[in-house]
Amino acid sequence: MAIAIKPVGGLTPANIGESLRRKPDLKGALFQFVMLFSLSISIGVLVVLLYTVVSDAWPVLSTRLGDFVTGTLAPDAGRAGISQGLKGTFYLCVIVAIVAFPLGIAAAIYLEEYAPRTRLSSFIEVNIRNLAGVPSVVYGILGLAIFVNGWGISALTGGRSPLAGGLTLAALVLPVVIITTQEAIRAVPSALREAGFGVGATKWEVIKDHILPYAAPGILTGTLLSIARAAGEAAPLLLVGTITGFISNSPGWFDVRQVQDKFAAMPTIITSWAKQPEEGFRVENAAAAIVVLVAFVILLNSAAILLRNRFEAKRAG
């Protein structure tokens, strides 16, 4: 039986080559351009934002940056500085690191390596995902009710203190630490585990000698990002209560007793200044404080990104 080829749409063996050659794909190019354009808007926003902040802050940055960083809260805009905010934020970050990281890493190890497939385990997993979505201001309520005013706990934290604020922020970043650590552990090839078990290592020995070292860069990336997040969070601290009026600077940077004392923090200082009527506070000082905070946060973020890229390249290569 002969197969009859019916010409479709005027195609003939003679002109089929011609029709396969593409016309320029205008629609496609336009689409690609629109996508790229949208992406550029997001990046453009970042540029405009940084430009606005730096130019608003310029009168401070160009004339008294050193005094601004070492100065204390003061009633005059021309004299006010952020050293106490830096110190408070430093202590908050340290407390977050001490509390949230061990807890988060241990929890992630349990969930990835030990947890039996029970209802309880999956409940814990779901619970962590939901906690990650709880608005930060709600964590502030936790901080206020438990860490600041909680019966018995307030004596330990000293009320509205870096300890109370730090514990609140630790609770806030804990789910993120757990989730990123879980991801890092999941990326460990199972051959590594099996090899460890094969030579008679116990589970914990495999975890500490093989899994954690392998997952360490991923874990560190996640923890750096969480510290950056904790440093910039203002809403929970508004509820926990920081001082933005006046606080003298007498205890030194490394006098640990101040974790139970009244404190100031960068994000709440910025908030309070941005809402002041006086222009020197509302625009110049607030912007200058933002420059310092953003520089710190971007530094942490870049470190995390670099770390990740380096190890990804290493693994791939």
Binding site: I43, V45, G232, I290, I298
Partner: peptide, 22 residues
């Protein structure tokens, strides 16, 4: 990607200031 990640890391108080001032 890192640029977007930097944008993701900008604290919300900064966006508040940006919204008010710009």
């Amino acid at each position: 990607k890192p640029i977007l990640e930097v944008l993701a890391g900008i604290p919300s108080v900064v966006l508040g200031f940006f919204a008010l001032q710009f």
